[in-house]
Amino acid sequence: MASLTRSARHLLASTPIKAPLATCSRFASTSTKTATSSKESNDTVVLQPKQEYTTGLTRLREHYQGTVQEDLMVLTYNHTFKPKAKIPEGVRVELKGNRHIKPAPKAPAANRVPELVKIDVHCMMKEALTSKFNLLSGFMAIQSITGEMPELINSKKGVHPWKLRAGNPIGCKVTLKGDKMYQFMDKLVEVVLPRMKEWPGLPESAGDATGNIGMGFPPSALSLFPEIENNFDMFPRMTGFDVTFTTTAATNLEARLLLSGFNMPFQVKNRAPPVPKAAAPSIESTPSA
């Protein structure tokens, strides 16, 4: 693991306690950084290219633009849309439970078709409590499956019973956008999810009511990624991870429509009864236009 992990190791070693979250931003940094950080980065191996390269068409992006977008426009079209009455100023609306006011739904329009904005891949490792170097395995795994350098996450608060101190590195996170996002989605949907045995698909209730859908993966799912499958022995610790799909959809339904347009499996509980085929008896030549 030597050369690959060198910079990650360095990153961990050089993380001072209570350092800001984005310590690793210097790895992708350009010359605009301060002198001290550029001095530090001299003796590190830069794992990430300094620039994004567009080396070809992305399959899912093309599919979205060619098929999904048009279909979503038809599916989410609402002919009898009425804008909600505005809440007058000074009136405070109390909602029941732990809910907050959502923005009023907007009229359906061609420029408001739901779209995938970003995918967050995040992992938290309990083993990092004992030694922060235990985080390396998860760090490398996330980097392998996403192709991007993860961002280190330090704990905000200390929790005494868990022996967690504030500012200790406890997890890592990657935010995918653009081509990389679609490529990751493609991999997930075509390779990983079909091989997750006995996973019934995302539940119907998936979504946070503002158009984002999240899902968690067990540690065993990590080995289903083609990048890790071949070098499974090289990763000492497998870790579970969360994936969050952030979309511009306004409702759960729209977000689910969008994701299922990318072939994301969803559970269907109440299937409609089968079509009675003989409902319309074969009518002889209706006069056609």
């Binding site: 399959r59 999904v68 299922s260 079509v275």
Partner: peptide, 22 residues
Amino acid sequence: LAMAARSYAAAANASPIKSNIS
């Protein structure tokens, strides 16, 4: 680039799947 647009039906179980059935 062949994807199953029909999977929309699975997600929007409320409206389209029923709408595909009389």
